[in-house]
Design a protein around this nucleic acid. Structure first.
Length: 569
RNA sequence: CGGAGCGUGGCGCAGUUUGGUAGCGCACCUGUUUUGGGAACAGGGGGUCGAAGGUUCAAAUCCUUUCGCUCCGACCA
């Protein structure tokens, strides 16, 4: 492509709307422009990268035996009502009516459509395993679009759905996707980590997320520094070893603690370690009062609580309702003498507290020398806290390290959630009707572009891994002398003929502009041709990532350029 | 939705406190000279100051309403 004719509007300055590197660079490098919040047009350069990634993903999917199809963007409400998600997914969907007043939505995901499709075709266990996928635009009315294409309201996703006759089949399908994802991300030249994840709203059991580790990531991931344990913080468990306590139990005592409501306040007021305070949190889980106990310096992981209770919704109790539900008072609520019928759940670490501090269920009073099991009993002790940096690994004796990451892929074992609600069944070997076992597998294609930039850029611009670079080579023709043009064009033509995606910067611009644009758009290999180099009968190659400069003699230049290109990652 | 901030030529911003009729840099057009890391000079085009209403002799500036965008929190690929 000749840059003199290319629609490539690069920007010298950062647009005010962008805060993170990938967003800024995608705009500056002329890859995309925004239409409205979270919705973008991909310009030619950006769209090339998207197609590169799509094709790498497509190849890995096809290789795994999955088959590509294309489902509708517009979906009818009846289908979503059938699965029960019309109301549950509700606000996340863009909904509208046709001229007859019938309800529709723009597909935020396609479990419903694919299940409705397949339930009419899969009749027998012999029709499975089956894996169908598509690469398509999804529409979600996100609560808060942000970070450019990382959380858009419209985005390109590869979504796949597997259908199996039994759970062993699902495990195989799931593993095949896990392997395909691992390959696809590696082929893109990205460092992506698979981590254990919570299934969340998607339902089912068992899932992994694929994370690009980056400073701006929206997710937090715990990694073990010794073994390969890795999990999303929503899921991550910390290892637990019973603490050895030397201290002997003292008598419980009530103390006057005026206005000392928070853990911070009470620990400094009583001059006691936060780890010895018992934090009591009052919630209504699906309307039922629950008292959660944590070590004072721990945070509650709500996902763990919900999963244990099999609940849907956690609501903090309003101040006025403490009396009604807990017979207590905000800031001084405690398990000791708690109202009967209130479920008390405690984190494992609470059990180890000796001579701890709790509220007294009475305004301005706390209890000291409180001991679990002697002074109160919990209905259960379980892992309820958010893991912290340096916690013990749950599988070995290593330590957990927290990092932030961008979720670029997520695979789920769905089980029968959708086949049940939408009635997708088959006949087994005995002629008996069975529910189809499903899995669902997503890759955020457009998000992956941004994640790749987060992982591969410097202060001058993007540094594309070769596999997803929009072009492999950029030729800078520095000047407009006849000989210089002739040589540049010749190299451009020959590289193009060899199938190398090549840009020729033939614009009437000063060298500095060309150098800077080349760096900005991140083409892996730059070939510079100017008077200086022509005089010496060479062209200059420069590798974007390493900055390595290589002088290439004009005779057999093409061969050498291909060689150099071959060695770039 | 709660909290914070911002809307002024294509882009980045000043001007708003203290009302007086819009400016700077980049980009763009013409010409001349330039040409190895974002050229210089000369000339030029382009703005309903997000929108609506109000106050005033006079509003980018003050008041009210409204729309949009960004950031922090609850959601997801």
């Amino acid at each position: 492509m000749r840059m003199s004719r290319m629609y490539l509007p690069t920007l010298k300055e950062n647009p005010a709307e962008a805060e993170i590197p990938s967003h800024q660079l995608m705009l500056r490098a002329g890859m995309m422009r925004s239409l409205t919040a979270g919705i973008y047009t991909y310009l030619p350069l950006g769209y090339r990268v998207i197609r590169k990634i799509e094709n790498i993903v497509r190849e890995a999917m096809d290789e795994s035996g999955a088959q590509e199809l294309l489902m509708p963007v517009v979906q009818n409400a009846e289908l979503w009502k059938e699965s029960g998600r019309w109301d549950k997914f509700g606000p996340l969907m863009i909904k509208f009516q046709d001229r007859k007043g019938r309800d529709y939505c723009l597909g935020p995901t396609h479990e419903e459509v694919i299940t409705a499709l397949v339930r009419n075709e899969i009749r027998s266990y012999k029709d499975m395993p089956l894996n169908l996928y598509q690469i398509q635009t999804k529409v979600r009315d996100e609560i808060r679009p942000r970070f450019g294409v990382i959380r858009g309201r419209e985005f390109i996703m590869k979504d796949a759905y597997s259908f199996d006759a039994d759970y062993e089949g699902l495990d195989k399908s799931y593993q095949a996707m896990y392997d395909a994802y691992t390959k696809a991300f590696a082929d893109c030249g990205l460092d992506v980590k698979a981590v254990e994840a919570d299934n969340g709203a998607m339902g089912g059991e068992g899932s992994h997320e694929f994370m690009v580790i980056a400073d701006v990531g929206e997710d937090h991931v715990a990694f073990c520094n010794k073994c390969d344990y890795a999990a999303n913080i929503e899921k991550a468990a910390a290892g637990y070893k019973k603490a050895v306590q030397e201290e002997s139990l003292k008598d419980i005592e009530k103390v006057y603690t005026p206005k000392q409501k928070t853990i911070d306040e009470i620990s400094s007021f009583l001059n006691i370690d936060k780890a010895k305070t018992i934090k009591s949190l009052a919630f209504l889980v699906d309307g039922e009062p629950v008292l959660v106990l944590l070590c004072g310096n721990d945070q509650l992981n709500e996902v763990k609580l919900l999963n244990y209770l099999n609940g849907e919704e956690i609501v903090q109790v309003e101040d006025e309702e403490f009396e009604k539900y807990f017979n207590s008072t905000p800031g001084f609520i405690a398990p000791v003498g708690m109202k009967k019928g209130v479920k008390i759940l405690a984190d494992l670490r609470v059990k180890d507290i000796v001579n701890g501090v709790t509220g007294a269920n009475e305004t301005d009073y706390h209890l000291i020398n409180v001991n679990p099991e002697r002074d109160f009993t919990a209905d259960d002790y379980l892992d309820l806290r958010v893991v912290q940096n340096g916690d013990l690994c749950p599988v070995c004796d290593g330590r957990l390290e927290l990092k932030s990451g961008i979720e670029v892929g997520h695979i789920f074992k769905l089980g029968t959630k959708y086949s049940e609600s939408l009635g997708a069944t088959y006949l087994d070997e005995n002629g008996k009707e069975q529910l189809i076992i499903m899995g669902s597998y997503g890759i955020g294609i457009s998000r992956l572009v941004a994640a790749a930039i987060e992982q591969h850029h410097d202060e001058k611009g993007i540094i594309w891994p070769k596999a997803i670079a929009p072009y492999q080579v950029i030729i800078l023709a520095l000047g407009n002398e006849e000989e210089l043009i002739r040589v540049s064009e010749k190299i451009y033509d020959e590289l193009s003929k060899k199938g190398i995606e090549t840009l020729l910067d033939d614009r009437d611009e000063r060298p500095g502009v060309k150098f800077n644009d080349a760096d900005l758009i991140g083409i892996p290999l730059r070939i510079t041709i100017g008077q200086k180099s022509l005089k010496n009968k060479i062209v200059e190659a420069r590798v974007r990532r390493t900055g390595d400069e290589i002088e290439i003699p004009l005779e057999n230049a093409i061969e050498r350029i291909l060689e150099v290109l071959d060695n770039i990652e």
